[in-house]
C-alpha cells in the first residue's frame, strides 16, 4: 500500500504536526509527501525520515494551500494511493474533507490510533469518548492528531522530488492576506503552555504574580472558576467545563484545588504541574508533578530555577 501525506507548512517551514502525520502514515505503507510552496519546502520534505517520494504542487494556484485547487490535486493523485493522510491542523481539516467529497469517501478526522488499514480510533464529544470506527470505503481519507504520533525526524531522508500539475479550474477563491499573531501572550486555546491560577492567588493583585512565570515559559494565563468568581480575573480566563477546554503540552496549576469542573477543562493536557499548599487537594490526583507548599514562596523559586537552567 502507498500512502499520500499532505504536509502543510507555515512561512516555508513544514509543521512538526505534519511530521507526526508521516509517522502515522508509515504504519500503513510507503509514504509519498504532497507539498505546496517553493522549492525549499519540497527539499525539506525530501529530507524527512521515511518519505519515499515528494510531490510538489507548484505555482500560484497551489500557493497558500487553498482548498479548491489542492483538493483537486489530491483527487487527481488519489488513484495511486490506499490512504490519504494529513495532520489535524487547520489546513488538513480545510482541504481533506473536500478531497474526500470529490472521491465519494467519508473522511475520518482526528485519528489517535491506527488499528489496521480500515480501522481507526478517534475521539468524539470533545474527547469524552473514544470511538473505534471501521471504514467500508475503498480509499481512506484521514487526519491524525499530532499529539498521538511522534514526529518523524526532519533529517535522514533523501527522497526524489516530482512536480505535479494543478488542474485548471475557475478560481473561486482568492488569497488576500495572512496575519500571524505576534502577541507576547498566546491565546488560551492555542497555547503550548498555560499557567493557571486559582483562589489560592488570594486577590487580583497577587494574581499578577503569575505573569513573570508565564513570560519565562511563553505561556498563556488561565484561571479556575473560583478565581473568576472571586473577581481576580475576567471571565475569558476561565478554564473548565463552563469555560475553555484546553490541552496544552504543559499546564501549570497554581493555587487551584482541582474542582471537577476545572479538571474537565484541562485533563487532556500532556503534562500537568500542580502547586498547592494543601497536600490533599484533588489537583494532585491528576498532576504529573506536584509541589506542596506556599505558592508565594515557590513561584520565585521556579522562576529562578528556569533562569539558571535556561
Amino acid at each position: 500500500m502507498t500512502v499520500l501525506v499532505f504536509l502543510d507548512h507555515e512561512s516555508g517551514v513544514i509543521r512538526q504536526a505534519s511530521r507526526s502525520a508521516v509517522t502515522a502514515a508509515r504504519a500503513l505503507g510507503e509514504v509519498h509527501a504532497l507539498v505546496t510552496g517553493d522549492a525549499a519546502v519540497a527539499d525539506a520534505a525530501a529530507r524527512i525520515d521515511g518519505v519515499a517520494k515528494v510531490l510538489r504542487a507548484a505555482g500560484a494556484a497551489a500557493a497558500h494551500e487553498l482548498a479548491e485547487p489542492l483538493a483537486a490535486v489530491i483527487a487527481d493523485l488519489a488513484p495511486a494511493y490506499s490512504h490519504i493522510v494529513a495532520a489535524s491542523g487547520a489546513s488538513g481539516k480545510n482541504v481533506l474533507p473536500r478531497a474526500a467529497a470529490l472521491l465519494d469517501v467519508q473522511p475520518i478526522p482526528d485519528v489517535v490510533s491506527i488499528v489496521d488499514a480500515d480501522t481507526f480510533v478517534r475521539p468524539i464529544y470533545a474527547g469524552s469518548a473514544l470511538a473505534t470506527v471501521k471504514s467500508s470505503d475503498a480509499k481512506k481519507v484521514l487526519t491524525v492528531r499530532a499529539s498521538s504520533f511522534d514526529p518523524a525526524s526532519a533529517e535522514g531522508g533523501a527522497a526524489p522530488i516530482e512536480q505535479v500539475t494543478v488542474p485548471e479550474g475557475p478560481a473561486v477563491s482568492e488569497f488576500v492576506s495572512i496575519a500571524l499573531s505576534k502577541s507576547e501572550r498566546p491565546e488560551l486555546e492555542s497555547a503550548r503552555v498555560i499557567v493557571s491560577g486559582g483562589r489560592g492567588m488570594q486577590n487580583e493583585e497577587n494574581f499578577k504574580l503569575l505573569n513573570p512565570l508565564a513570560d519565562r515559559l511563553g505561556a498563556a494565563i488561565g484561571a479556575s472558576r473560583a478565581a473568576v468568581d472571586a473577581g481576580f480575573v475576567p471571565n475569558d480566563y476561565q478554564v473548565g467545563q463552563t469555560g475553555k477546554i484546553v490541552a496544552p503540552d504543559l499546564y501549570v496549576a497554581v493555587g487551584i484545588s482541582g474542582a471537577i469542573q476545572h479538571l474537565a477543562g484541562m485533563k487532556d493536557s500532556k503534562v500537568i504541574v500542580a502547586i498547592n499548599k494543601d497536600p490533599e487537594a484533588p489537583i494532585f490526583q491528576v498532576a504529573d508533578y506536584g509541589l506542596v507548599g506556599d505558592l508565594f514562596e515557590i513561584l520565585p523559586q521556579v522562576e529562578a530555577a528556569l533562569d539558571t537552567a535556561g
Binding site: P123, A129, L130, A131, T132, K134, D137, P279, V286, Y289
Partner: peptide, 19 residues
C-alpha cells in the same frame, strides 16, 4: 460508510509524583 466497532471512555489519568 463507517461502522462503529466500539465506543469507550478514555483511560483515566494516572496520578504522578510529588517533587
Amino acid at each position: 460508510r463507517l461502522t462503529i466497532v466500539s465506543v469507550a471512555e478514555p483511560p483515566a489519568r494516572q496520578q504522578g509524583i510529588k517533587v
